[in-house]
Simulated assay, not measured.
Amino acid sequence: MNDLIYSATMSADGYIAGPGGDMSWLGPFTGADTAADELAARTGALLVGNTTYGGDDPNEGTDAEGAFGGTWHGPQFVLTHRPPTTAAPDVTFTDDLEWAVGAARAAAGERDVNVLGADVARQCLELGLLDEVVVFVVPVLLGDGVRLFDRPGGRPVRLEHIARSTEAESTYLRMRVLKD
Rank of each mutant, 00 (worst) to 15 (best):
G49Y: 12
D90Y: 04
A103N: 01
A36Y: 11
Q123I: 00
L46T: 02
T86C: 01
D57T: 10
T43G: 08
A88S: 14
D119M: 09
L130Y: 06
G74M: 06
V135P: 04
A41K: 11
D57H: 11
V137K: 07
V177C: 06
E38M: 08
S11K: 05
G109Y: 13
G27M: 13
T92G: 03
V134F: 00
V157W: 08
V48E: 03
H73W: 00
A100V: 09
A17Q: 03
F68M: 07
G69A: 12
N59T: 02
M23D: 10
M10H: 02
M1H: 14
A108I: 10
N114I: 00
G27V: 13
A41T: 10
Q76A: 15
T9W: 02
Q123M: 10
P139G: 06
V146P: 03
V157L: 02
A8W: 03
A36Q: 13
E98S: 14
W72V: 10
E65D: 11
A35Y: 06
T62Q: 09
G61V: 06
T166I: 14
L116E: 12
V101N: 04
V115E: 01
Y172C: 09
V140D: 00
A35T: 10
A121P: 08
T80G: 05
V78R: 01
T30K: 05
N2C: 11
G49Q: 13
S7C: 12
M1E: 12
A12R: 01
T62W: 09
L4V: 15
L47M: 13
L130A: 06
A87Y: 01
R158E: 14
T92L: 09
K179M: 00
E60P: 00
A106K: 15
M23Q: 15
T52V: 10
A45G: 13
H161C: 00
Q123V: 00
R155K: 14
L39T: 04
D37I: 03
F136K: 08
T34I: 03
P19A: 05
A107P: 07
E169C: 11
V101W: 05
D63V: 12
L130P: 05
T94F: 03
A121M: 09
T94M: 02
A118R: 04
E110M: 03
G27P: 00
L26V: 07
K179N: 03
G143H: 09
T85S: 15
P19Y: 04
F136G: 07
G21T: 12
S24W: 02
D96E: 13
L178P: 08
T85G: 15
D131Q: 06
G128M: 11
P152V: 08
L39M: 10
M23N: 14
E160V: 05
L129P: 11
L116W: 06
A41N: 06
I5A: 03
S170I: 00
S170M: 07
